[in-house]
Structures are given as C-alpha cells and as structure tokens.
Computed example of a mutant assay.
Amino acid sequence: MKAVNRVVLLGNMGNPPEFRTFPSGDRVAHFSVCTTEKWKDRESGELKERSEWNKVQVRDKSTVDFLDRYAQTGTKVYVEGTLRTRKVPATNGGDDRWFTEVDATLVNLLDRMRESESGSSQSEQRATPVPAEKPASRPRAVRSQPTGEDRSPRRNVQQEPNGFETDDALKDKPRF
C-alpha cells in the first residue's frame, strides 16, 4: 500500500524566521505559521475560532536566503512540505522530547515585500509590505463585423448521392 505525507499550510507567519548556520556553511530557517479555522456553532449560532501554530523548517539555500531578506511577522505565507517528527534525547535523566514540524519544500510569501533601504538583512530592519500591483488589463478581442462582401475564395461544393458534400479542392487528396 502506498502512503502520502504531504502538508499544505496557508496562514500568517507567527514570528520572524530564526536562522542557524552549521559548520559546513549550510543554513536552516525555523519559523511558525498560524492557521485559523472559523465556524458557526450549530446550537448557539455563535461564531467560533480555533488557531493552530505549526512549526516549519526550511533547508533549501535559496529559500532560506529569500526568507532572510523578506520574511517578517504577520506575512501571509503558503507552505508545502512533509511532516517530520524528531526525538531529542533527555538530559539530566528526564524524558525524551518529541518535536513535530513541517519540513518545507516550497515557501511563498503572499504579501509583496520590499527590501529595506539600507540593503541590510538585520532582523530589526525587516522589509515593509508593498501593495500588490494590479495586472495590466488586456484589451478584449473585437470581432469584425461583416461588410456584406464575401472575401473567402469561391469553392465548388457538390452534393453526393450518399448525402455528403464533396469539394473540388479535395479531389486530389487521398481518402481514408
């Protein structure tokens, strides 16, 4: 039997990404995504809401660099990835700790961001949102109006006894 481990999140970034650099030079970004579910209670008719906080880990170099430049708290974010559970051994005789997080393969920031004026990627100088631009409207296709003249070439079309029409221009073409 096949299995599927796929996670798709659409929510708001709960905190600015935290970055770790390994001795090999590889970087990892960690952040949380808040997803909110709203519904109307059937019995009371009251609007209810529940939020889930999902931990996300990103290892792709270009995505980590992108998040370092543009991501900030509150940014609308779309995340695709797989669910991973890892165990951290206990220290001082306590219980082992388990963490479940999304190992992201795709991260899209849905709010358009602008890099800070100084070009610095310091966390206190994060980018500010810029309103999304409307796509340029394309003109609608205009259908030409008939002028009364038929400019198509004249064809000699004849009715065959079996009810089909034949075209003299197709006489030399092979039939299948």
Rank of each mutant, 00 (worst) to 15 (best):
V8L: 14
R138S: 14
F176S: 05
V8E: 09
S118R: 14
S123G: 01
E124S: 12
G163C: 03
S24F: 04
Q145T: 10
E117V: 08
D95M: 05
T21F: 12
V130D: 00
A169M: 14
F19H: 07
K76G: 03
M13I: 02
S116Q: 04
N108E: 15
A29H: 07
S137H: 08
Q125T: 00
S144I: 01
D95Y: 10
V157G: 03
R6T: 13
V8W: 09
D60W: 01
K87M: 15
W39P: 01
V33T: 05
D172E: 15
S116G: 15
R27N: 11
F19M: 09
K173P: 07
V58E: 11
V7E: 11
E80R: 14
E101I: 04
D96W: 06
D168Q: 14
K61G: 08
V79G: 00
A136K: 08
G14C: 13
A136S: 12
D172M: 08
D68M: 05
S152E: 11
D150Q: 07
N92S: 07
R27W: 10
R155W: 10
R42Q: 14
V102T: 06
V7F: 07
R50N: 11
E165H: 11
G148P: 01
P161R: 13
L47M: 14
G148M: 03
R112E: 12
E124I: 04
E165P: 02
N156V: 04
N162D: 10
E43P: 01
T36A: 11
D60C: 00
D68C: 02
V157D: 14
G94E: 00
S118V: 05
N15H: 12
R138Y: 04
L10S: 13
A169R: 12
F164H: 03
K55T: 08
L110R: 13
E49K: 04
T82G: 09
T105K: 14
Q159C: 03
L110T: 12
P17Q: 07
H30G: 07
S121L: 06
T85M: 12
P16N: 13
E43C: 02
P135Q: 12
K55L: 15
R6Q: 15
D65A: 05
S51F: 05
K48S: 04
Q57V: 15
V33M: 14
R151M: 08
Q159P: 04
K61H: 11
R84V: 13
T166H: 13
H30E: 06
R69I: 03
R151L: 08
P161L: 08
D168C: 06
H30A: 13
F22K: 08
K134D: 15
